[in-house]
Design a protein around this nucleic acid. Structure first.
Lengths: 113, 113
DNA sequence: GCAATCGTCAACCGTTTGGTTGAATATGGG
DNA sequence: CCCATATTCAACCAAACGGTTGACGATTGC
């Protein structure tokens, strides 16, 4: 769970990758179309997409010869939660946050997909 | 504004640095004390603290020969906001956590540390 | 069937990163 | 004044990163 944060934050630490995520927020895209606005090779973009995929931030599905890229917004959840522990509640310690997460998990049966 | 995100996310992408932030959440600490639980040299920790400082995540103030490290929780706000842009996370939000803390506070007088 | 398109792989390159060690620079205390 | 403590600096190292290029395997359309 901890090393997942490593990968997610590292993936977010690159401006090209963040730009790609922003593009995918609008719509799913093929690899070639993702690459189009960037001043770098297709191979480089392909690598970036691999990193985003390994981080779980996007998913890729091949249909025909075109590989479609899709944002996976839920994947940011853990990282966001981790950050909220520091951001807004400075005086609050992690124990309280952990208790919160546990309580939420126990009390709240998963909502509809 | 964009490159600030680079630095912040990169700083967060290391488990040692995240652990340091968690420690500083409890209390301000001297560099030597920060280093104590880690299996690496003081110089390495000093570098990590430099990175966290440059990212604005902590601040350092020298009093006498001791340099005190202090969490700067506000610094995570921009990154958090950026992430919320992707969030259909809905589930764990600040409001829920605040209600939890309130409930906890009302029902359970805080035990000693 | 063949050529064009889509995407990845492999090798390479320069830079950055995370760590080490040893010396250097304050500062404080007896 | 001298020694111990607190911290950083500088040089070095291996590994990872972000990019390139060229070859390659699928798939599609004519």
């Amino acid at each position: 769970m901890e090393e997942r944060l490593d990968i997610v934050f590292a993936a977010l630490a690159d401006p090209t990758r963040r730009a790609i995520l922003a593009m995918l927020l609008e719509d799913d895209m093929a690899v070639t179309d993702v690459a189009e606005p960037f001043a770098m090779s297709l191979a480089a973009i392909s690598k970036h997409l691999g990193i985003l995929t390994r981080a779980g931030l996007i998913s890729q599905e091949k249909r025909g010869r075109v590989k479609w890229c899709k944002l996976e917004p839920d994947s940011l959840r853990d990282a966001s939660i981790w950050m909220q522990g520091f951001g807004q509640f400075e005086a609050v310690n992690l124990d309280a946050f952990e208790r919160f997460l546990e309580a939420e998990l126990n009390s709240d049966p998963p909502g509809p997909a």
